[in-house]
Design a protein around this nucleic acid. Structure first.
Lengths: 130, 130
DNA sequence: CCGCATCCTGTATGATACTG
DNA sequence: CAGTATCATACAGGATGCGG
């Protein structure tokens, strides 16, 4: 039983970066609800806004731009008046479903582990945990 | 006539919460590196600290406490002098491997999509994306 | 309708010094 | 060794109002 890779091996640290990248894509208060709205077929700015209760125009605009930069979302402007904008998930964006699904499965078990099964509908409040 | 599911259906929004819970568990700058260090068998506070370059004692302490509250990590104090503390992943904590694996796979593809394949070793810098 | 500019606040994190 | 206390800061996000 040697101490195999107990040194500071940067190739092990190397697994961290892509994982963090994936997390970053979903990070923040609004990315996920927006993605879910888009996956459910909502396309217009105001439509998405309605599906994501509480979000401000500023944040929605910012997050959509971010998702677009990551090529998860396609933005199409129609030359109407007033202007019409359509946001859609790219095929690549759809590949997020698998990741979200994995997170979903684990997250539900977590919820049931941390809280009672009958509290599954309660929002997580970490201040109760201690 | 029903508006099919184009209303504000809270059961669809319901998938968001557990996913967000899972994300929260991994959220922040340090959770993931710490978890990886623990999964690789590093147990002592200072050991973990060494494996997570740049982290301060304050953050390591805080994040370990957070992971412990989420029952991902077990903390055991040995009555030596000076005191010795051992952190280990719980069996439950190990279940995170699957989630991290899913994130890893997606994250690597993402990295190759956003950057060239030869830039895979570069850290993500979103300011370059625009 | 679809945003952007501005200002403001809270939270996450960093720096540093100290203790059992 | 394994932390805590205190102060400082940057950035995410909220509120509000304007503009093509």
């Amino acid at each position: 039983m040697e101490k195999p890779d107990k040194s500071n091996h940067s190739q092990c640290t190397g697994i961290i970066r892509p994982v963090q990248d994936a997390l970053d894509v979903l990070n923040g208060k609004w990315k996920l609800p927006i993605i879910v709205a888009l996956l459910h077929g909502y396309k217009r700015f105001s439509e998405i806004s309605r599906q994501v209760p509480g979000i401000t125009d500023r944040m929605l605009s910012k997050e959509l731009r971010d998702l677009e930069l990551n090529q998860l979302v396609k933005r199409k402007v129609y030359d109407t008046f007033p202007v019409t904008v359509e946001y859609t998930m790219t095929p690549y964006g759809e590949t997020l479903k698998d990741v979200i699904s994995a997170l979903h499965i684990w997250g539900e078990k977590h919820r049931q582990k941390i809280f009672g099964a009958d509290l599954v509908n309660e929002p997580v409040d970490k201040s109760n945990l201690g």
